[in-house]
Simulated assay, not measured.
Amino acid sequence: MTASSVPSAPSVSRKPALSAQQPPPLHLPELARRLATEYLPEPPTPRRAAEPLDGLIQTILSQQNTAPITRRQFEGLKAAYPRWEAALADGPDGIEAVLRAAGGGLARVKAGYIHALLAELDETRPSLSLRETRDLSDEAARALLEGLPGVGMKTASCVLLFDLARPAMPVDTHIHRIARRLDLVPAAWNAVKVERWFAEVLPHDWATRYTFHVAAIRHGRQTCRARHPQCDRCVLRDLCPSAALLGPGEAGAGQTAMLRP
């Protein structure tokens, strides 16, 4: 890899620390410990994907999709296009047809994102690959990812966490909801601000952030649901100011789609 192929870290204007505006509660480590014990007592060994581009495309597919549909769509793409160059050549209509055959919504939108992503890599990189991100700093890898079409902060954070074993902290709807209910962050904060806050207050290591991310999502799916939260069996009940307001849980739906895993 030549020096010119490695993107330099952009000059970033320093934003005020959100943790100064909203200091983390003293019991945050206890929250993290309980979630880990309940949902992920043995975190996996960190690994880096051989081709992070695959992970990025899976993450795009997973948005507003269930995990089984995401898997079917990705497997359909890999079967139709053993190399991503073939998907680029087939165009957005061909990609859309493959996604529709696998089921799931937003096929046209996601096909457009994937084709635009591949076209950008074809124009700017030596090959249709993101393997070089494995050797970049966290900041440079994020800058490269977020510079691609359709890739925002959360999508980049998922690739960093799951495919590059970097200490990112993506915030999905489950984690956002839990953070508000636990009064960790102001209710008016959006997911971007909540992610920035967690990035400031959680220890900067992969295992801690991976465990918190996955455990909190499982907590949101199984217990702290959007509708009918199961407060009566919540491991955080005595630390949650919302428990008394939400009341005892009852069986119900209200699941939201997840990015990964």
Rank of each mutant, 00 (worst) to 15 (best):
P24S: 15
L26F: 12
L245T: 13
A67Y: 01
I57H: 07
M169G: 01
A140F: 01
A257K: 11
P29M: 02
M153I: 11
A102Q: 13
H115P: 03
H115M: 12
Q222Y: 10
D90C: 06
V185L: 10
L239C: 03
L61R: 11
L148M: 07
G55V: 01
T133L: 03
R237F: 00
V194N: 02
S62F: 05
V214G: 02
R142N: 01
G220Y: 04
L239Q: 02
A257P: 09
P23L: 10
R209G: 04
G252E: 04
E85S: 14
V98D: 08
A87N: 07
R177I: 13
A86T: 04
A216M: 15
E123M: 13
N65L: 12
A143T: 04
S19H: 12
G150H: 01
N65D: 07
D135N: 08
S157P: 04
V171F: 01
L28H: 13
P7Y: 11
L259M: 15
P16M: 11
I114F: 10
A140N: 03
A116T: 08
L121V: 12
A156W: 02
Y39K: 08
F198V: 00
L28E: 13
F162S: 00
P24E: 09
S13W: 11
L246H: 06
A207I: 10
D54E: 15
N190D: 15
M153L: 15
V6W: 09
P52T: 01
A17I: 09
R166W: 05
H115G: 09
L56A: 06
L182I: 08
H213M: 08
A140Y: 04
K193T: 05
S127Y: 14
V109D: 09
G152P: 02
S11H: 15
A80I: 05
V151M: 10
V235Q: 02
A199M: 12
P203R: 05
G104D: 09
L106I: 08
A168I: 02
F198H: 00
Q230A: 13
P229F: 04
R218D: 08
F162G: 00
P68M: 04
A79P: 12
R196H: 14
P41W: 06
Y81L: 14
A86L: 14
P92H: 00
E120I: 10
A67H: 05
P43M: 02
T2A: 12
R134N: 06
R48N: 06
G103K: 06
I95Y: 09
A116K: 05
Q230R: 14
Q64D: 08
Y81R: 00
P46G: 01
V109E: 10
P44T: 14
A179P: 00
L245D: 05
P43F: 01
A111K: 02
R47C: 06
G249T: 05
R71T: 09
T59H: 08
D205W: 01
T124M: 11
R72N: 10
Q22D: 09
E75Y: 03
L18E: 02
R166K: 06
P52C: 00
P170N: 00
A87D: 07
A102R: 13
P10D: 15
P82I: 14
A80R: 03
L145G: 01
E120V: 15
I57Q: 07
C231M: 00
L106E: 05
G252Y: 00
A253N: 11
L121I: 01
G152S: 05
A79R: 14
V201P: 02
R72V: 11
R181F: 07
T133M: 05
E139P: 02
L239T: 07
L202V: 02
L121N: 03
Q22R: 15
L99W: 04
Q21I: 06
A79I: 10
